[in-house]
């Protein structure tokens, strides 16, 4: 039997209830109280909303664009074939009332009954056929969705390339080279489109990061170091894009540092490479 919880006890347990961290008995008792207490219901709703925001702190999903599109296509196909409203079962011929009659009336009634049975049989067949057609349509829709997803993916890839090219070939693009010392040293080209305010950095030879670390790009002015984002290279290479309006005379340097995962508000880690604006 579920123990009764006082208001204060229940209220204190709402936080744990919001993340479903109560043991079964406590959970039942807390829910029983909440069902009768408007204050607790409102508080629980607010706590659940707050808890749901924790989802936004989760790391990036590692499912790629192809998988994302595949899941989307599959979902839409399932939904299309779902038939949310369940079709009524075909009427059964053997329960159709056929009133037996005598003489000519009886013959007509029997004939009408037979016609009705045949008609209902046909209706049943058509309904089954409709289900088959619906399944076939579902498959066709899934195929179309897959093709559409492929087209969308290709279009996005082309747009990305176009955008990248625009960011490095524009009339107002300044080129800076970030370097450091040593063999196989990391280096990068930064293309700053001062008209479009886009920053495109292409980095090579970036050392592999340890777990829990990330690279962070900084735009350095006389008064501040502005984070332009964190990144992780693949096989030592990375293309980083950012948008930020900065007057041309304010940029003093660019730098890449290694920082804890998630990045930092101000640089704390080792400088991986840098360039001062005098060199561009």
């Amino acid at each position: 039997m579920t123990r009764e919880m006082s208001h204060d006890e229940a209220f204190a347990a709402l936080g744990a209830l919001a993340v479903d961290a109560l043991d079964d008995e406590e959970r039942s008792a807390a829910l029983a109280h909440v069902s009768t207490c408007l204050t607790c219901r409102q508080e629980l709703a607010a706590l659940r909303d707050a808890a749901s925001n924790l989802a936004f702190t989760a790391p990036a999903v590692t499912v790629g664009a192809d998988s994302r599109d595949r899941v989307r296509a599959g979902l839409l196909a399932r939904a299309a074939a779902d038939g949310r409203s369940t079709p009524a079962p075909p009427p059964r011929a053997d329960i159709v009332p056929v009133t037996a009659g005598r003489g000519r009336a009886g013959v007509f009634a029997a004939a009408a009954g037979i016609l009705l049975v045949i008609s209902l049989g046909a209706v049943g067949y058509l309904l089954r056929d409709r289900a088959r057609l619906r399944d076939a349509a579902g498959l066709q829709i899934a195929q179309a969705a897959r093709e559409r997803a492929t087209n969308d993916s290709l279009r996005k890839a082309v747009l990305t390339r176009d955008s990248l090219l625009a960011g490095i070939t524009g009339r107002d693009v300044a080129l800076m080279t970030l370097t450091t010392n040593g063999t196989k040293a990391p280096f990068a080209y930064m293309f700053w489109d001062r008209r479009a305010n886009t920053w495109t950095m292409i980095a090579h030879n970036m050392p592999e990061l340890k777990a829990g670390r990330t690279y962070q790009l900084w735009l350095v002015t006389a008064s501040s170091k502005i984070s332009a984002g964190t990144f992780k290279p693949q096989n030592g290479d990375a293309v980083i894009r950012a948008t930020y309006a900065l007057p041309a005379d304010q940029l003093k340097a660019l730098a890449v540092t290694e920082e804890p995962a998630g990045g930092v508000a101000q640089p704390t880690g080792a400088m991986i490479m840098a360039v001062t604006t005098g060199s561009h």
């Binding site: 990036a60 747009l159 501040s224 984002g229 990144f231 290479d237 894009r241 950012a242």
Partner: peptide, 30 residues
């Protein structure tokens, strides 16, 4: 490859200074 993931800068949102926004694979206005 466009491989670097970009996240928004770490400057707290409450700061009034504009900050760069970056979205992997696309260019957005500041």
């Amino acid at each position: 490859p466009v491989s670097g993931y970009i996240r928004l800068p770490m400057n707290p949102p409450s700061q009034s200074r504009p900050y760069p926004s970056a979205v992997d694979g696309s260019t957005q206005g500041a």
